[in-house]
Design a protein around this nucleic acid. Structure first.
Lengths: 245, 245
DNA sequence: CGCTTCCTTGAGTAAATTCAAGACTTGTGG
DNA sequence: CCACAAGTCTTGAATTTACTCAAGGAAGCG
């Protein structure tokens, strides 16, 4: 449950998240600079990556796996406030501490940068700081979508929205009628914490979506969407259809 | 209810939000550049500033007043996803459209920058892009706090958290025992939309906080905190006490 | 194979919502 | 200046939704 052995650095040009991570716009010289301050680290599922309030010695990109950000109230209520996937960025270069816990939900590989060094490099590398700004704005948009979900959606709508999101990520090109096997990277309890529900409510709503022929489960962590239109209709949101870029 | 007449540009060095807005780090030459592309605009309370999905021709700093960002579901449910105060920034320089409505909650003065020009300036002005990154990260932190509130807090805790927030903003220096008159910039319905509740629940919880001697109302929009400790205790959160910068 | 953990389902409860009525504010025109 | 109208807010009663508590079942691990 703790950190596994660190990995040997690999060449940035061969990196799987090269074109989407914070370094996406960097040129060869800049990549060399980053390579000099980077370290790969492995975390096994369930391991804590950073702790709320603790001094933060590094920032990182998620290379593989799923990372969750969560907040806990005194009496133990937990709310997951972000789910980070491959290429997402963890940490605030300017801050020594963050206000949530960072946990590896699956086995995770991070590309870590020593915080002070990264910060110094940000100041003189517009390719880096612009990309980070862009990624942060995207996170903010996602956070606001989640606020709508948490503040106004019913349990059924929350589940449908979440599974619609998973489906969109797993299947970016919309091959209509084609229903691939998609991974659910969270347990029922983690799903509940992300959706602001209890695990029993999550389970009940999933049973209902199954019974209605909208979702099909292969095992606890793998499903297919049988009726994409009905799933979309159950989210409560309309599809976005205007230009954003 | 629509836009009032535009104002004549004022000198940036005399600007009330000079040291906190997106331009905070700009030097004299950079301020001149910004001044060349800025326009002040007035909006009266209730006016819509930007509409979801509509092409966005400007970005802006809030000079005075309160601006709300909100999302609406097809059936009319509304969730406010952000409350912007003096010096906060509106808009995404890289995007032609945004995914929420922007409304003037009180009378508002904006310092608007033509979007394309602002974007061009961002690319070659690190003072500007770094400040914007910092402000965006702060917004993201605030959004995540709100996700905890919306996902896990009770109605009473939501109200207490909101009024604690208003008190903190109005009274940054903690003069203990001193209870100034604080403005509530939202109606009951707007408060409900911000807290993910109904207006009736908001009203009931406020009555209870009044009855318990925690809050006192002078009129609908003005209150004092009579018992700061009890208010803090009712928020459900502990106070933050670790370094963040 | 047995244990542990995770998940499902059921029954009763609690919290917030909906529906409804009435009171208070605020602004307007007589 | 007062009366009235419109909007906003408060309070009550009934309802709904999701939660809590509880038990049993399925899956994963040693």
């Amino acid at each position: 449950m703790t950190r596994m052995s660190d990995l040997r650095p690999i060449d940035c040009t061969a990196c799987p998240i090269r074109h989407r991570a914070v370094c996406a716009r960097c040129d060869a010289a800049e990549l060399d600079q980053l390579a000099a301050i980077k370290t790969y680290r492995n975390f096994s599922a369930g391991a804590q990556i950073m702790q709320r309030g603790a001094p933060l010695e590094f920032v990182a990109s998620v290379v593989t796996g799923v990372v969750s950000l969560s907040k806990t109230l005194e009496d133990g209520r937990i709310q997951t406030v972000g789910l980070l996937l491959a290429s997402d960025f963890i940490g605030r270069p300017e801050r020594v501490a963050i206000d949530f816990d960072v946990t590896a939900t699956t086995d995770v590989v991070l590309c870590c940068f020593q915080r002070a060094n990264f910060k110094a490099m940000l100041d003189c590398t517009p390719h880096l700081s612009h990309r980070l700004l862009e990624m942060t704005l995207d996170e903010l948009d996602a956070a606001r979508d989640w606020m709508l979900l948490l503040g106004r959606k019913t349990a059924r709508e929350r589940l449908a929205s979440f599974f619609e999101l998973l489906a969109l990520r797993a299947q970016p090109a919309l091959a209509v009628g084609w229903t691939p096997r998609i991974e659910l990277p969270l347990s029922r309890e983690e799903t509940a914490n992300y959706l602001g529900l209890t695990l029993e409510t999550v389970s009940r709503q999933l049973s209902q979506l199954k019974a209605q022929g909208i979702l099909e489960f292969h095992d606890r962590r793998h499903f297919s969407v049988l009726d994409r239109a009905k799933l979309q209709a159950a989210t409560g949101s309309e599809e976005k259809s205007y230009p954003t870029v």
